[in-house]
Design a protein around this nucleic acid. Structure first.
Length: 602
RNA sequence: CGGGGUGUGGCGCAGAUGGCAGCGCGCCGCGUUUGGGACGCGGAGGCCAGCGGUUCAAGUCCGCUCACCCCGACCA
């Protein structure tokens, strides 16, 4: 490609409202343009990167038996009503009416369409297992798009769907994806770590997220350096400190003025926070068939811990959860700041599993300025649910080995879910087994967002001058620069020797040669000053830079420099093709070394 | 949805107390230049986010709306 023809424009300065590096560089390099919040156009340079990323995905998913399909972006609402996600998903789903007034859905994912395909195509165990995938646009009307391509509303995703006769088969395909995903990310030059995660609205029994660890990530992760335990904070377990064993003491009301917070209460009574019970009121939307029902929930954790809303949501199997308003708390007969589970009727009480093991706690007395001391679970009050609902913090102890864990931030670049029969049962995606019995297909789903992956690669590979693409995903292998005197009219009678020394003529010939050899080359044939060309080359970030100039010719050839190294070499013209091919192979093998078997961790 | 911020040529910005819309980069033409964002001369390009007020006069003052960004809620 000739740069003089490239549909693109590099910018010396990034737009003022752009913050993260990947966004800044992709905009400055002329890769992307924003149309609206979370909606982007991908210009030719970005499209080439995305195509390479997607080809890597194809290669790896094909290798584990995937067959590529294309499923629609616009769906009739009917299939989403069959699985009830039409009712369960909120404003994130794009809905509209077609000309006849029928409800339509913009695809946010494709389980429903897959289940529909399966019920029309799969009838026998002989057709299973199977794996289908596509690379297709998704629309998720995220309430807060941010950070360029990291969190958008319209995006392209590679999503695959495994189909099996039983859970054993699913486990096999799940593990195959686990490794294939590591291969994909490593081939893209992106370091990732797998984390156990919440299944969320996808449902199912097991999920892993593939996280690129970076401070700009918005997922919070707990990692144990000792034993390797790694989990999203939403579900991370931890070893709770044991309360000292004590005999239950008699319940006693104590005056505790101005102690609406645990901190002030513990300070006033001069006791550790772990001797108090923390009351949190939430309103949960509980699903009952296609109806939802809002209930006030009284959650109790020990004073030295905080509530984890995801864990509470899962414990209640609730659709949504929000903090209760003060008037809702009062309406239930509780006193904010002094709320007590004792003798409080009509609320749904959920206690953390550390509470029954912690005797003689201080809890509210449901009276302004008073608490009870020596509150004991079971004797003084009971809960509908006892569950782990406390959130893990920095230095919380690992649930596996007890070592203090650390907190990291990450971008979720991929995820894998064991769905089971949730969608197949809802939609009648069944098959006949060997005994002639009707059974639901056991499904798994596996996604990678290609734009987010591209942005993460940029986030990982850049310097103060611009991008540094791994060769596997670079828009071009070679960035060819020619520095020349103003192009002169070819002179009559100019000697062969003169033409041989003309940088422009040499560069043109080299460009043809590289292209013919299958080396993708971006040829900066513009009439720009050397500074502009070098700076654009660094910004765009292709892995190999070749400079043809008077100076290089006088030194005996052309100059070659890797984007990720400082060193420059003069290579004689007769060796250049071979040298570039060897460098491409070197860069490739550096990436290939990263692709290694990764042990599966439950 | 709550809190904060910003809207003036493609990008970055300036336009006190209302009085002819500017600068740098980029873009076009001509010329000089060519190893790290060159220089000269001449150009093109803006209903100042939109709507409605106040005023002889609004980019500037007032009201409403919209868009975008950041923090939070949310998020497969």
């Amino acid at each position: 490609m000739r740069m003089s023809q490239l549909f693109s424009q590099t910018l010396r300065e990034a737009p003022a409202d752009v913050e993260v590096d990947s966004h800044k560089l992709l905009v400055r390099g002329g890769y992307i343009q924003q149309l609206a919040a979370g909606i982007f156009s991908y210009l030719p340079l970005a499209k080439r990167v995305l195509t390479k990323i997607e080809d890597i995905m194809r290669q790896e998913i094909n290798a584990i038996g995937g067959q590529e399909v294309t499923m629609p972006v616009v769906h009739p609402a009917g299939i989403w009503k069959e699985t009830e996600r039409w009712y369960q998903v909120g404003s994130e789903m794009g809905r509209f009416l077609d000309k006849s007034g029928r409800d339509m859905v913009l695809a946010m994912t494709h389980e429903e369409v897959v289940a529909d395909l399966v019920r029309k195509t799969i009838h026998s165990y002989r057709q299973l297992p199977a794996l289908i995938y596509h690379i297709q646009t998704k629309w998720r009307d995220d309430p807060r798009p941010r950070a360029g391509l990291i969190r958008v509303r319209e995006f392209t995703m590679k999503d695959s769907y495994s189909l099996d006769i039983d859970w054993e088969g699913l486990d096999h395909q799940y593990r195959a994806h686990y490794q294939a995903y590591f291969n994909i990310f490593h081939l893209c030059g992106l370091p990732v770590k797998a984390f156990k995660s919440d299944v969320g609205m996808m449902g199912g029994s097991m999920a892993h997220e593939f996280m690129y660890l970076t401070p700009i990530g918005e997922d919070t992760l707990l990692v144990c350096d000792q034993c390797g335990y790694a989990a999203n904070r939403q579900i991370a377990r931890f070893m709770k400190t044991q309360a000292p064993t004590e005999l239950p003491q008699p319940l006693k009301k104590v005056a505790t003025p101005d102690t609406k917070t645990i901190d002030s209460l513990a300070a006033y009574l001069d006791i550790p926070k772990s001797k108090t019970a923390k009351a949190i009121f939430m309103v949960a939307s509980l699903i009952q068939g296609i109806e939802t029902n809002d209930r006030l929930v009284f959650a109790i954790v020990r004073g030295d811990m905080d509530l984890n809303e995801t864990k509470l949501t899962n414990a209640l199997k609730a659709k949504e959860m929000r903090p209760a308003r003060e008037d809702e708390i009062i309406a239930a007969g509780a006193v904010p700041g002094y709320a007590s589970p004792i003798d409080l009727e009509g609320v749904l009480v959920v206690v953390d599993d550390a509470i029954p093991a912690s005797p003689n706690l201080i809890a509210g007395a449901n009276e302004e300025g008073f608490h009870y001391s020596n509150v004991n679970y079971e004797r003084d009050y009971q809960a509908e649910i006892i569950a782990d609902i406390a959130v893990a913090e920095e230095d919380s102890h690992c649930p596996e080995c007890g070592n203090p864990m650390s907190i990291k931030r990450g971008v979720e670049v991929g995820n894998i879910f064991k769905l089971g029969s949730r969608y197949s049962e809802a939609m009648g995606a069944n098959f006949l087994d060997q005994n002639g019995e009707v059974r639901p297909v056991i499904m798994g789903s596996y996604g990678i967002g290609s734009g987010r992956l591209m942005a993460s690669i940029v986030e990982e590979h850049n310097d103060s001058h611009g991008l540094i693409w791994p060769i596997t995903v670079a828009p071009y292998d070679v960035h060819l620069i020619v520095l020349h005197k103003k192009a002169k009219k070819p002179q009559e009678g100019s000697s062969v020797k003169e033409r041989d020394l003309d940088p422009k003529a040499i560069a043109e010939e080299l460009y043809e040669q590289l292209e013919a050899a299958g080396i993708d080359t971006l040829f900066d044939d513009r009439d720009e000053s050397p500074g502009v060309k070098f700076n654009d080359a660094d910004l765009i970030g292709n892995p190999i830079r070749i400079t043809v100039s008077q100076r290089s010719i006088e030194s005996g050839g052309v100059e070659v420099k890797r984007r990720d190294q400082e060193q420059k070499n003069i290579i004689p013209l007769e060796d250049i093709l071979h040298h570039v091919q060897a460098t491409v192979i070197d860069l490739q093998s550096e990436i290939n070394k990263l692709v290694i078997p990764i042990p599966f961790e439950e």
